[in-house]
Amino acid sequence: MRLLLGRAISALATALIPTTLTLAVLRTTGSAEALGVVLACELIPLLLLLPVGGVLADRFRPERVALVADLVRGLSQAAIGIELLMGVGRVLDLAVLSAVAGVAIAFGMPAVPRLVAAVVPGPERLRVNSRIGVATSTSSVLAPALSGGVVLVAGPGWAALLTAALFACSALTLGGVRTAKQAETARNTFAKDLAEGWREVRTRPWFLKSVLGHGVWHFMAGLFLTLGPLTAVKHLGGEASWVLIVQCGTVGLVAGVFLVPRLPVRRPLVVVQVAAALYLLPLVALAVSANVVVIAAAYFVAMFGLGLLSPLWETVVAEEIPEGALGRVRAFDQLISFASRPFGLAVAAPLAGLVGMTGLLLTGAVAVAVANLIAISSVKPPATGSPGERPPAKLRR
């Protein structure tokens, strides 16, 4: 319960940051360029330091890493809030504090899968990961409205302080989770630890192919989330059309994470990769200029697939990767995801202008399907047994 509560609070705090920071920078400077600089200052250290965070997550007890990471994020948000309340809000200061938050995220993210694996028994992990997914999905829906409301009523400084308070609560909650003390082992150099983590990745073709497929998924999501609203506003009836599409996707996501522990899934990795391939549907719908109802329905199905994918993937990886290497392996996974989507967001408009939106989206639809379905070729068939045999506690890939 403590783990679930801490993850829910942390997810809400994390989801509050983009809206708060965006409104704060625009209200203070009115400059889109300044906003881009501030957001990039969080992303760049996150990408650079995720491998370091993976090594630390495997060296130290995960609850302590999560505690320190959330405390640092809370302090950075508190500093932003105080500066905004004082009427300062310098872009340089916001950029530096955002970079500090990015460093904390890089250190904290790989520790979370290790924390779940350490405290949740194998048969319960899918259910717990599903509940964490519901909390995260709900937070992504509630956070923009909550942050926007606080900014409108009291100002962005108070929204940042609210975020800081939530991170403090999350740190104390997750920091109170107790895991077994790690056995003393010979301490390797950082480079050797990193190399051993990469060895865990490359010796598992199913993992490497799946992660690369998910990277293509995230890249195409960046394209869709850039070209989709542009198309909706210009050709599908305005902003309300895009809101409808996004909300249908949100409903699909929540439905997926809610239903996945109740489904008779015997081949989790096959379901994961097919679910990722479903993202071809909204890409094709947008490419052929379908009406808003068709695009919304396609996006619902795609995000329902994501809802299935996330808890199953978390569970499969925790079952198949040694706990002592889980932080480094998941850091590689997270690095691919975090690098791919911003890249897709950045190049969507230039690529569409160069090759045309229809060709770009159709090519992307094929790519996301092929890249994810090809990973199924690395899935081992289940062991033979009677048709009614109950699957073992260790999930089959």
Rank of each mutant, 00 (worst) to 15 (best):
V37M: 05
V260F: 07
A165M: 13
A348F: 09
Q77C: 14
V233E: 03
P381S: 10
E323F: 10
G74W: 05
A221Y: 09
D70N: 07
G324N: 14
V329K: 00
F190Q: 00
E320N: 12
P144Q: 12
G359W: 05
F207D: 01
R202T: 08
A331T: 02
V366Y: 04
E63L: 10
I17H: 11
V243E: 12
L46Y: 15
A8R: 02
K380V: 08
S140M: 11
F207Y: 13
G388K: 09
S386T: 01
L286I: 03
L5W: 01
A164S: 13
L212I: 01
G385L: 10
R59L: 13
T163F: 15
G149V: 05
R27F: 06
V368G: 12
E319I: 09
R396S: 12
S289E: 13
G102L: 09
G133M: 02
L283Y: 07
A101L: 05
A302S: 12
E323L: 13
L71G: 01
Q247K: 02
L345W: 12
G155S: 07
F219N: 10
L23Y: 03
V284H: 04
H214M: 14
L286P: 03
L236R: 03
R127L: 13
A195C: 06
E319A: 15
L373I: 03
I105P: 00
V233R: 10
A298E: 03
I9D: 05
V150W: 06
G54Y: 00
A287T: 04
A183N: 12
V316N: 09
G133R: 08
P62F: 04
A101W: 01
G133C: 02
A296C: 08
M357C: 11
P322R: 11
R330T: 14
A159Y: 09
V100A: 15
F258W: 13
A331L: 04
A40L: 14
S377L: 11
I245E: 06
L223D: 00
L172S: 00
A195M: 03
I105E: 13
E389C: 10
I9P: 06
L306I: 09
S10Q: 03
P121G: 10
V120S: 13
T28D: 10
T163K: 09
R90C: 02
V119T: 12
E42D: 15
G215Q: 08
G102R: 11
G215H: 03
P123L: 06
L43K: 15
A393R: 08
L236W: 02
L97R: 04
R114N: 11
Q77H: 13
R266H: 10
L43F: 15
A11W: 01
A160T: 04
A15Q: 08
